[in-house]
Design a protein around this nucleic acid. Sequence first.
DNA 1: GAGACGCATGACAACGTCGACATATTTTTA
DNA 2: TAAAAATATGTCGACGTTGTCATGCGTCTC
Lengths: 339, 339
Amino acid sequence: MVSIVSVAKVAGVSNKTVSRVINGEPYVTEETRERVEKAIRDLGYVPNMAARLIRSSRSNTFGIITDYVSTTPYSVDIVRGVQDWANANGKTILMANTGGASEREAEIWKMFQSHRIDGVLYVTMFHRIVDPVTGDVSIPTVMINCRPQTNELLPSIEPDDYQGAQDLTRYLLSRGHRKIGYIRLNPILLGAQLRLEAFRKTAGDFGLAESDLSIRLGMEGPVGAEKNYVFAVATEMLQQRDRPTAIMSGNDEMTIQIYIAAMALGLRIPEDVSIVGFDDFRTVSLALKPELTTAALPYYDLGLEGAELLNSVVAGSKARPSSRVVPCKLVERTSVCSL
Amino acid sequence: MVSIVSVAKVAGVSNKTVSRVINGEPYVTEETRERVEKAIRDLGYVPNMAARLIRSSRSNTFGIITDYVSTTPYSVDIVRGVQDWANANGKTILMANTGGASEREAEIWKMFQSHRIDGVLYVTMFHRIVDPVTGDVSIPTVMINCRPQTNELLPSIEPDDYQGAQDLTRYLLSRGHRKIGYIRLNPILLGAQLRLEAFRKTAGDFGLAESDLSIRLGMEGPVGAEKNYVFAVATEMLQQRDRPTAIMSGNDEMTIQIYIAAMALGLRIPEDVSIVGFDDFRTVSLALKPELTTAALPYYDLGLEGAELLNSVVAGSKARPSSRVVPCKLVERTSVCSL
DNA sequence: GAGACGCATGACAACGTCGACATATTTTTA
DNA sequence: TAAAAATATGTCGACGTTGTCATGCGTCTC
């Protein structure tokens, strides 16, 4: 493998001078710089990060530790956000995935440490409360899409589920809907509670009675092996004499079943029932006809800002706000009509 | 940072002995071994990979380079497969994502080289023909879900789209369907051609005439900005007097629109139209009611086997078959009826 | 014209680990 | 019981890089 020494030999300078050129340090004549650069090109020299790390003990690498990538397609965008940030800022990304196993998690932290990672992004695929199992390894960490339970507060970045659901509820209210159904997400998800709470509160504040709200559970059970009641629940809800004029759904995925339930009953969307989702999972929200009005979860931004935040934590700026929340954006399409 | 030297000092042995313990080498008394292990635990020592690499020039790291992770939720499972393999075999994974930009791609190869990566997994999110832009960097490489165009044959692993579509077609034929509609994937995808070809050939061999097949284009245009005709095309197809009794869809995602089109016309699935998808993208295939019969793309296995193959390439076993194909599995659910 | 200064370069050590080789101790063998 | 072999441990240097310090040379200042 071609090293700094071979470059130095070819360029007829000391290896330190080559190092200077590589790192753009001052005090190198234009002429030597060119000679060195030519030698680098000719030999196809590429600096060895490992050697660099060993000297400087800064790896310029962040680790991402995720729970269930890809069992769920949702929040992969977080990872993309992180990668784009890393790319733009010359950092490298080491990725590992627990699959939900906590033994595995401790191993990963150890592995990260053995690579002398500068910081860790702890990413969950569902918005939830978790405690990282670090196995007595301590590396600067930022939590994305989740929040630590214990008080050893790690900084975190989360989506604003509450505000998203609030916006959607207000949107429905502003279109004149007064009887609204709500099909709940799996309650083990933090978003489920926040969204429901926002719905209840907003509708209540507006003046709707509990009886105007038809709230039903759509899913429950452990992640990856949920029981799914959505279709049945939606069918039931829409068969009521006094059926809601709009249904709000825990997420976009669930709206597929709501659409189908409605259509099977001969109801038109949105003329007979309006439907809104949550997430803006475009594979679904754009495939449904009429296209789905929903609240976009800011996954990509979560990743981007999480990396940024981690970077500042690593750089030593402390006294950071412990938790930051990123708003959801209402995406208006055509699944809601005005009454 | 605690190093092998500090451990040696605490345990009262030479650093070489510590090294021996860490690497499980023979010729260490049980007693010293225990003393060293205790010191390691007490100090929380973790070996420094960078230093190891610098000595042995084996990084034990694979790089994954992907095009569009997460613009599309499909093939993230490939990545999971790779990660699981890496995990089981003590390898580390460095991930980078081009976003489709080839300048970026060359940078990534350079970055990989600077980390002295052992091998690269070149992963595309759609089955297609590509030429890696390595920028004169050469590292052992395996292509997953794609195949190189030029003759500088890199080993590759691909899904068997042809066989998958063949199985689905046979399945429909065996249920008595004799007029079958087909809504095509975006033709820029390799899978689109293979699947269509298999459909045509299988139906033809069975004895169906071209006129029994109603083949229409569902999508076209550049990835990420496709034009989507599926809903319109499906509606049209189902309004024909002589409409097909079954529709085969380019992928599962498209079937959402087909379901909705059918239901909007008052047709029942599967009594009035049978529908099959492709991919087994479970967010869709399980959410649809009736649940979708489809062919599962072996993404996870692609990743697993790709990593395995790369490993053997790196280890120097050459003369490998240049391209391996992994079969798709037919997943029977309830969206098809027998006539 | 002598010291001070700025620039350009080089020599060398050190980072953490492990391979090659050396040495010390014990066990086996003839 | 001496020589040979096996076991246990240590010394030292090298991997590729960069930080520290030293050196050489030209220019400026008083």
